[in-house]
Amino acid sequence: MATYTMTAPLKDEDVAKLRAGDVVKLSGIIYTARDAAHKRLCDMLDNNEELPFELQGAVIYYVGPSPAPEGRPIGSAGPTTSYRMDTYAPRLHSLGVKASVGKGKRSPEVRKALQKHTGVYFGATGGAGALLSQCITGAEVIAFDDLGPEAIRKLTVDNFPLLVVNDSHGEEQYAKPNFEF
């Protein structure tokens, strides 16, 4: 298991070298989007509208932060459960998105999309939102303000600690439960 420092947006060569279980300290610019924002992004794609951010190389963080206290860019900001975005993720990867950050399992379709489009799924620690927010140095709402916590925010992150859960080679880091399904 290797530890890398990387800067977002990410390139194919960054993603290709990552293996499930690796740790990435991510800096740079990432975008928040969760359920309602994903639906709107895909509606915009259907209507050939210009998206509020560049998908090429983008890292999307599945988070709806709590409001920012005075003097801080953001409130608590840990990951939400990712499977709800599985409907939309393959399409976004096919258009250049390189990574998503969340928690929990992804669908076979998302895992295939990661292999096909050289993408990666990162896990961040769920329920550690206060701690993770310390790595966010800037936050600005860039779209869908009416969605409140679900608005799209452009975040600047500094050494944000991530674990490679699903890599672009078809491997996964989650433990298989000892259970006969």
Binding site: V63, G64, S76, T80
Partner: peptide, 24 residues
Amino acid sequence: EVLGQLLENADLAKESGLPLCQDT
């Protein structure tokens, strides 16, 4: 590592007044 982060998070929330989790 994860459990350690959760303890650190709890201490930080208590000191800073930030909610433990963004999903309140």
